[in-house]
Amino acid sequence: MTLQITEVCVNCWACVDVCPNEAIYADRPHLLIDDAKCTECLGDHAEPQCAAICPIECAIVGELGDPLNPPGSLTGIPPATLAELGLLAAGGR
């Protein structure tokens, strides 16, 4: 029961400030989620907070590497366009 941050993270710290469990910590090259602390926000919020504020598609993934914000879901830029431009982030790890 824990989420993870992927290499497309831009280190904007937005998730750190909204995590109810202080589960997100600084690391290189990007922030990480402490599996011992992350509860996926169950009991605190309806949505996992890190994923609700994260501006980067595919930066936050579930246990199976499934992105909570898949390509196109935040920017509205169609995945096909992203792929064409080589901007499509690898979802998961």
């Binding site: 497309v8 831009v10 904007c12 710290w13 400030d17 501006p55 980067i56 509205g76």
Partner: peptide
């Protein structure tokens, strides 16, 4: 102030 709480169509945080 790195974090943001909205998305604008003229911005890409990446």
């Amino acid at each position: 102030a790195p974090a943001c709480n909205i998305q604008c169509h003229y911005c890409n945080r990446k």
